[in-house]
Design a protein around this nucleic acid. Structure first.
Lengths: 340, 340
DNA sequence: TATCTATACTAAACCGATTTAGTTATTAGG
DNA sequence: CCTAATAACTAAATCGGTTTAGTATAGATA
């Protein structure tokens, strides 16, 4: 079946392109196109299976009805869930999502932002590497609608929806302290990210709240690109710490998973010898031996709030007040911490 | 900073739009634009931070440099991993991925396909609901480049990359049989999908290979949209089966997870009383109590092969032979099956 | 001197829509 | 009967690029 264009319909029906376009966009009535003509156009379009070319449409209207989502990694369950909820929230709104992963590479992230702008997305949701201050600032300067999620730039006044990382880790650490653990290790990533830095601060604050001194030796910062090879050593060192640590706080779900694997390899009994708690979780953490006490994130809320804020800015008032949301997380207590 | 367009550059530099366009597309030399003019254009473009409007570009060239990915659900780790690998494979090729979830809804899938065509994507990778025969056939008729993944339509001659579902489940079931289990339950989804039907056949073939009779009571088919509420009953019935089953094969990772939860609730010892094996897995299945024996899928291969086939068809010969690949899976033996 | 050939460009059509600013024919009002 | 208003359209500009088919000039060749 040959593809049919607006022009074809117009020629065939001996009406103008204008008429066809108006009718197909439901603007026939308000533009006084007769019912008869409207019917002819509609029928012909349906019969010949006409579909408008979105590119042409977007170009001429200056609206793409697309929003862009830039995340570190679509394979990470945390982000794939967010992506899923964003899609769901957008369902029926007419917007499509264009998404891409930066793989924590600031340069790639910059390219993605520009590529999305070229593609005329109408707004962006970004879980940034937090190393593109310039780029984000210029988005803001251009009054381009966007909202940061999961990670934001404290130094710029933007929309954002993040989780209270500080508080999440603090709560988790305090839970261990309350259970009597005192030699608490912390396995985290090298803090290029403000979010990660917040987690370290939370850990520290919890200790100090219990009158304990912060000890650098208890904190292992792994390279985000090479953590799998470094985890063995990190765990090993914590176990060698004078008489070994009695517990470990992991700052991400994947560190927890490989950390626990390592502890099991070394035949450490969890939680008897070493208790653990995790920031964020994987789907099966409740089934793990032992079930892992985790700080769980309000993934759905992050996604939905971000979409609401963005759509509101795209469609609503142009010079709005920035919306800043820091959502709370929830500690789900299972067995790996040594219970309550 | 005001946005600068091709036209602006041309007017400012007193050259034609043609010249600017050619130079910026690296076609200056072959079109004999003088080095001097080229430099002026390039410098001006860089200085004023010119970026071409992709929509206009795509429209006029008839190429969008975008490929579409339609999957059931981006939140499912299986598909999010595939999405990740597809992105990775496409990196540097100039193509962008536009992806959307059908949520197993054939109608939605149809809309997505059409929406992507409107957006002029140059090719499609689809993990179909397998209930859109018509739609897929018409893609084929239009010689539109596409490749099916994970699920295909046996009745149409298309490109596809799938996993041998039959063989995967058969191997898993045989493993249980070889370990002496004889009353093997099978928890699966209602087989709207050919892929799911294949799994049932694999289960059955394994039994029959061991001279066992297929028994309907041992097979529980759950509604894909309501499996969480049905799992309790399903497991309960299998346990009530004369003297209870001695093992269960789960046909997807999420059924395994909730099934195991249910078994644990009921204080069934796994694998002593009931052994389990899973088709596909979640990130922490090796850490679970007990670690879950799973058939693992070649996710990376699926993604990479699909991309290769698609790009080849988009850029290469126009009337190619369809590529049909059925990849093997691998049984990873852990504890939940009662070991070797 | 007339013709050919490079060189270095450009005008204008085109991609497939949307939209502004009219135009014509008919009817209503004064 | 004349003017104004309304109904039912349409021509042409526009969106921001790409591309085809030329053109003008200078130098080389016969």
């Amino acid at each position: 079946m040959k593809k049919v264009f607006l022009k074809d319909i117009a020629e065939e029906l001996k009406v103008s392109k204008t008429a066809v376009s108006l009718v197909l966009n439901n603007k026939g009535d308000e533009n006084k196109i007769s019912q008869e003509t409207q019917k002819r156009i509609l029928d012909y379009a349906k019969k010949h299976n006409y579909v408008p070319n979105q590119l042409a449409r977007s170009l001429s209207r200056g609206k793409s009805e697309t929003i862009g989502l830039i995340i570190p990694n679509i394979s990470d369950t945390f982000y794939s869930k967010i992506a899923g909820y964003i899609e769901l929230k957008l369902k029926g709104s007419g917007y499509t999502v264009l998404f891409s992963s930066s793989n924590e590479d600031p340069k790639k992230e910059g390219e993605l932002i520009r590529s999305m702008l070229n593609r005329q997305v109408e707004g962006l949701i970004i879980a940034s590497t937090q190393q593109n201050l310039k780029e984000i600032e210029s988005l803001k300067q251009d009054k381009y609608p966007f909202v940061l999620i999961d990670r934001h730039y404290p130094e710029i006044d933007t929309n954002y929806v993040v989780v209270d990382n500080y508080d999440g880790i603090k709560t988790a650490t305090e839970h261990l302290l309350r259970l009597g653990r005192r030699k608490i290790g912390f396995i985290t990533l090298k803090p290029k990210l403000e979010a990660i830095r917040q987690r370290l601060l939370g850990y520290r604050a919890a200790l100090e709240g219990f009158g304990l001194e912060y000890n650098d030796d208890l904190v292992k910062e792994l390279d985000p690109l090479n953590y799998e090879n470094m985890i063995g050593e990190a765990v090993g060192e914590l176990l060698k710490f004078p008489n070994s640590v009695d517990s470990i706080v992991f700052s991400t779900h994947y560190l927890t998973a490989i950390g626990l694997r390592e502890l099991k390899n070394k035949k450490i009994r969890v939680p008897q010898e070493v208790a653990i708690v995790s920031f964020d979780q994987l789907a099966a953490f409740d089934l793990v031996d032992p079930p892992i006490t985790s700080v769980i994130q309000p993934v759905k809320d992050i996604a939905e709030h971000a979409v609401e804020i963005l759509i509101n800015e795209i469609e609503g008032n142009k010079n709005p007040v920035m919306v800043k949301e820091t959502l709370g997380s929830k500690l789900v207590i299972r067995k790996s911490c040594g219970t309550f």
